[in-house]
Amino acid sequence: MRIAVASGKGGTGKTTVAASLAWVWDAPVVAADLDVEEPNLHLFLRPRITGRRTATLEVPEADESLCTACGACAELCQFKAISLLGEVLLTFPEMCHGCGGCLAVCPAGALSAGRRELGEVIWGAAGEIGFVMGRLRVGEAMSPPLMRAVHRRLEEMLARRPADVIVDAPPGVSCPALAAVAGADLILMITEPTPFGLYDLRLAHQAFSSLGVPLAVVVNRAGLGERGVYEFCREEGLPILAEIPYHRRLAETYCQGRPVAAAGGEVQGWFQELARRARELAAGEQEEAAHA
């Protein structure tokens, strides 16, 4: 089963929840950090790293001696990554989306596959918790291709050792966030009871409800702000699986770089309850999918 932890607004506590859920999960589990622009999950799970690989994107390399300057590649490219200036072919590898169209369309075989470095895929384990993350190279603009590489590594890990998956998604509701939650059996939307939290929860609800996956909410920093988030959840029939109050001890545990569930006591209890309810909802989805 796969649980995706997401949110419209940044900084609502996605990583806090993902780390703590993994920490209390009572079955084999892999924690996957798909927020490749700013990955933080490793700061709290502190995994022992056992492997890493550089992820690359296929970009065109031109052989001028073979190019007939027909312009077919430049005409096809939708990303301004290749253009013909008079008789000279220019490539802009940093603009390339790696679609392979120019290589396929070139009648002269003047283009070959080069590589652009996207970043790194890194994996390991934190005790019993499997771990995988992507880290975008600073200066690289595109995160979706690196996210696909993280997904591929995740599938390899699951093929070797079947496990549940907890995904830490990037903030927002544009294509990287949707790519991260794709294939989940449950999407947990983390929010806070403030006007910003509510506005971005509405956006997330709009974006994710089209995926046909059960959605649920975790309210972080409960006790702050106002009731709007609760009213919205009631109106939309969104179950609130946990409320995490703002609490000095939690903030301190977080600052120490530990899953807040590790603070023990009632905090650990909240996350165990959250895990139980999340598992129930996700299992319901899996059953329905099996019957469909």
Binding site: E37, E38, G139, A141, S143, P171, G172, C255
Partner: peptide
């Protein structure tokens, strides 16, 4: 948030970037 496309597009040629952070590991 982040360091990808939209951030890169917002950065080019600005006179000053003010980076807001908080005292946590993240």
């Amino acid at each position: 948030p982040g360091i990808g496309c939209p951030v890169i597009s917002s950065l080019s040629g600005v006179d000053l970037a003010v980076v807001v952070t908080e005292p946590t590991p993240s």
